[in-house]
Write a protein that binds this DNA or RNA. Structure first.
Length: 589
RNA sequence: GGGGUGGUAGUUCAGCUGGUUAGAACGCCGGCCUGUCACGUCGGAGGUCGCGGGUUCGAGUCCCGUCCACCCCGCCA
């Protein structure tokens, strides 16, 4: 149907007869001469209908409207002097139409197909076939394609096999809420859609496949966010006979390959290494944005010499006092400070103490600090005149949580966060367990198949909760610009260790057997040491695109209520379907 | 489950302390226009003010409820 693509008509085609097809991006009817910008995936080119070349064709051109699909035959020529469009790659040429055909018409549009459309998301998703015509979205999908291709190429080169795992699988305890699928042939029983192919990929290792990968859909029935969809894609990998260092090295090379191939960006520096403890101490979270500094400092040992009751009481109860220095923010108004205070209170802090460093220290609380103490605090924070010192005093986790969010907020306010900068970090030495206060039991921080560190195995077999809380995991997260883009671990490959793990998680042998028996059996039949990692593809591509939302890199995303405005899924089903499945509805009003 | 913002023409929005016939831009339809590329120009059509109640002589505007979209908290091993 065509000899050229619209965006690829160039000066070298001048004089030749070509045939192109595409959508009418814009038409300009001057009465005498009609211009149409014809668009296909490759770009735009201007076509000209002039009465001099063909009266009938020129007349018919008046019928064309936006988004009509047309086919054009004509000759390429240089545009007349003074009419070159510098802002268009094809702006030096135009196609003089000799023949054209309307291949399809288009009803009036619900919104303009245009990169800077400001149509609402729900309208765009309802007519996603129009929304996806916008070059800016196509660019994202193209980058996503290049990214997955680069992953596949790299992994293929490293001897990884792409192996599919079941989508209809088994519900497992722990983790997110499952999406369930009823089984018609087993009334009353349900499949679950996988939250990840975790167990299957481990079984592939036991089976001797040695290197597995899959770019695979995962499902979690939890509430949505700008960076969270109920179905999302992981680059999922598992390797046998490796340690965590070897895995991290491989992943680092892979990521650099992908950034170079898909984005043309060379990541030169080595990924930063942080232990979990370092990350928490210095940034208050396990996914710090390393594009800026503003590190936190623990000042508990200093403020214990003050007379500020809030701090002293917190310390007495086993809490801590940490602080951060806002560079150049000593001029903050009462309202600015109130806003910041409200922000941290939203995350559980009781308040935010502040001290401005001007010629003197300025704050309602300076009177509680003896001479010299404030200098020591200032020194520890690396603060100087003109800065604002902000303090949170609370339990360790609340303090860290609030200050890490405050740190990100200050990073934004001080405009320290630049796009097109990629700061990677590995976070390692995670605790194996996280204490669940509600249920009074340990939960796996990563997942229940994560191996404890060799040197902590002794603790692993001790009975007291305090020892157990000190066990570190052979787990590692990969962080990019303050976003967790992936994580993995060395897995448990010995049955007795896995049994012990379930025991510590409060999962009885019987339950473990019914839920994970097939994995436990496999571990008992010559399971090799193995480990792996999964990367969140959507989030990664989102960062690479500079997109604000994960929905901008997914062709058919769901709304915050986990619905699809295009297909209207989910929807009710017929009584017959329910009957076949043995399902009766009991909807709470 | 909770907090916030929004919902008025096809679209994006304005609409003041409640008051006559709800406006603008873009889009759409028609006319004019031979060098535009945000074309210009003249004219026209287009509204259940998300939905349901209430207050009032009178509600787009105030109150209550509800639905939807987005952002966040909880949740997401």
């Amino acid at each position: 149907m065509r000899t050229h693509k619209c965006g690829e008509v160039t000066g070298t085609d001048i004089g030749s007869e070509i045939k192109i097809v595409g959508w009418t991006n814009k038409w300009r009817d001057h009465g005498g001469v009609v211009f149409i910008d014809l668009r296909d995936r490759s770009g735009l080119v201007q076509v000209v209908f002039s009465p001099e070349s063909d009266e009938a064709v020129h007349k018919a051109a008046h019928k064309v409207r936006n988004e009509y699909v047309i086919q054009v035959s004509g000759s390429v020529r240089a545009r007349p002097e003074g009419t070159v469009n510098e802002s268009l790659p094809t702006g030096a040429v135009e196609v003089v139409v000799k023949e054209f055909k309307i291949l399809n018409e288009c009803k009036p549009l619900p919104f303009m197909v245009d990169d800077d459309t400001d149509a609402s998301e729900s309208l765009r998703y309802k007519h996603r076939y129009l929304d996806l015509r916008r070059p800016i979205i196509q660019k994202n999908l193209i980058l996503r394609h290049k990214t997955t291709k680069a992953f596949r190429d790299y992994l293929d080169g490293e001897g990884f096999l792409d192996i599919e795992t079941p989508i209809l699988t088994k519900s497992t305890p722990e983790g997110a809420r499952d999406y369930l699928v009823p089984s018609r042939t087993n009334p009353g029983s349900f499949f679950a859609l996988p939250q990840s192919p975790q167990i299957f990929k481990q079984i592939l290792m036991v089976a001797g496949l040695e290197r597995y990968y899959q770019i695979v859909r995962c499902f979690r029935d939890e509430d949505l966010r700008a960076d969270r969809q109920p179905e999302f894609t992981q680059v999922d990998m598992e390797l046998s006979f490796v340690n965590s260092e070897e895995i991290m090295t491989l992943i680092e090379h892979m990521i650099k390959h992908v950034f170079k191939e898909a984005l043309g960006t060379e990541i030169k520096e080595q990924f930063v290494r942080l232990t979990y403890k370092d990350a928490m101490d210095r940034y208050g979270c396990d996914k710090p944005d390393l594009r800026f500094g503003l590190e936190l400092a623990d000042v508990s040992d200093l403020v214990k010499d003050s007379e500020f009751k809030v701090f002293l009481d917190t310390l007495k109860r086993g809490g801590i006092v940490k602080a951060i220095a806002g560079k150049g923010l000593a001029g903050y108004s009462r309202k600015d400070l109130d806003d910041l205070t409200k922000e941290v209170q939203g995350y559980g802090a009781k308040g935010l103490a502040w001290i401005k460093i001007k010629d003197d220290y300025e704050s309602p609380i300076v009177k509680f600090f003896p001479d010299g103490l404030l200098d020591k605090i200032k020194e520890r924070l690396g603060a100087e005149k003109g800065d604002l010192m902000l303090f949170v005093a609370d339990r360790v986790n609340v303090t860290n949580d609030c200050l890490s969010r405050l740190r990100n907020e200050l990073g934004r306010r001080l405009e320290l966060i630049s796009d097109n900068v990629y700061k990677f970090a590995w976070v390692t030495d995670f605790p194996l367990f996280e204490w669940n206060e509600d249920e009074k039991r340990h939960e796996a921080m990563h997942h229940p198949f994560t191996s404890p560190m060799e040197e902590d195995l002794e603790l692993f077999f001790k009975e007291d909760a305090e020892s157990q809380s000190r066990i570190r995991a052979q787990a590692y997260d990969i962080v990019l610009n303050g976003c967790e883009i992936g994580g993995g671990s060395i897995r448990i490959h010995k049955k007795e260790v896995q049994d012990r793990m379930f025991h510590l998680l409060g999962i009885e042998a019987e339950e473990a057997n019914s839920k994970f028996g097939f994995l436990l059996d496999a571990l008992d039949h010559g399971a090799p040491p193995h480990g792996g990692l999964a990367l969140g593809l959507d989030r990664l591509v989102m960062i690479m695109c500079g997109a604000r939302s994960i929905r901008d890199v997914i062709a058919f995303p769901k709304t915050q209520k986990a619905a699809c405005p295009l297909s209207n899924a989910p929807s009710e089903v017929s009584a017959k379907q329910l009957e076949e499945l043995g399902i009766k509805l009991d909807i709470k009003e």
